[in-house]
């Protein structure tokens, strides 16, 4: 994508898609989805070297795994608007007989999805496994993944982080959506994460901090820096400081919209803050 304005328009349309998907079925997770709209847009529009002619094995292309599967609305919107499946299909989100299940799955054959996620804490291992196979296959492409910060409370992550660090899985760029919120409140109140930088560094990872995780230029630069660090015997993690609910004033600065849909009035207000750019589905 050529200009920042074009990408910003893409992000705004993705925000509308997120809000309209969850509103239509009165369920889903808008908060984390809105907070990651910039990340997904930069990744799929500018970073991933991948074909929209989807093949599960993904040989000779970059791969992406979403571990915190509840932010499926942003994933689906960006996949559709990047050409993986018709944008109109966003209409089927969470409905009977849909490929757009509440949480992403391979089970219904949705192009772009390579693993089911939703039960938290499993995606790091899967991403590392795919990165190991890329190495075995002599495939120079990279593996990207996204994880919630609250999700790091799951112990399996640290088994995986220990493995990847000690084995120098350096073709992996994991990103943590560091919004410091989870269902029950602030991560600091639920189960404090401490210093994620120190934790990852202690496991021999390269750590990149992005203080403005909802700033397109900051995310672009983080990916550039991360790609430059690959191949150095260390896995890479981007700690992406985001704002849950970003782009909708009443959804920000609270954990309340983690898993709650807006009503009609709230939707109207939220959409007014994000005027249509690329056309609603």
């Amino acid at each position: 994508m050529s200009s920042t304005q074009q990408l910003q328009d893409f992000v705004t349309q993705v925000r509308r898609d997120i809000l309209r998907q969850v509103h239509a079925v009165n369920s889903g997770h808008p908060g984390g989805s809105l907070g990651c709209a910039e990340f997904f847009s930069v990744l799929f529009q500018e970073v991933l070297n991948a074909s929209t002619d989807f093949d599960m094995d993904g040989k000779e292309e970059d791969l992406f795994f979403l571990s915190n599967g509840h932010i499926s609305p942003v994933y689906y919107s960006v996949l559709a608007r990047s050409g993986y499946f018709p944008v109109q299909e966003l209409n089927t989100f969470r409905k009977l007989d849909s490929r757009l299940q509440g949480h992403p799955t391979t089970h219904e054959g949705l192009p772009g999805v390579r693993i089911a996620s939703g039960s938290l804490g499993q995606g790091m291992s899967v991403a590392i496994g795919a990165a190991l196979t890329k190495k075995l296959n002599g495939d120079q492409h990279l593996v990207y993944s996204l994880h919630g910060d609250g999700e790091l409370q799951e112990g399996q992550n640290w088994e995986a982080i220990m493995y990847a660090g000690s084995h120098g899985v350096d073709n992996l760029i994991a990103t943590v959506d560091y919004n410091k919120k989870q269902i029950d409140g602030a991560t600091d109140d639920v189960l404090p994460l401490g210093s994620l930088r120190k934790k990852f560094e202690a496991f021999d990872w390269d750590v990149i901090d992005v203080k403005e995780g909802n700033n397109l230029e900051a995310i672009r630069n983080a990916f550039k820096e991360a790609k430059a660090k690959t191949g150095n015997k260390k896995p890479i993690v981007i700690l992406m400081h985001t704002e849950m609910g970003n782009g909708v004033d009443f959804m920000m600065n609270t954990h309340a919209w983690h898993g709650k849909a807006p009503n009609d009035e709230q939707l109207e207000s939220a959409l007014a803050q994000n005027p249509e750019t690329l056309g609603d589905y």
């Binding site: 993904g58 040989k59 693993i115 291992s125 795919a130 890329k134 088994e159």
Partner: peptide
């Protein structure tokens, strides 16, 4: 082609699932 994962079975299953992507 042998992967010693240590005493970490959950990670082992996840690694295995990921390794299938690409034909292993």
């Amino acid at each position: 082609r042998f992967f010693q994962v240590g005493i970490a079975e959950a990670n082992m299953i996840g690694l295995a699932a990921g390794m299938t992507i690409g034909g292993k």
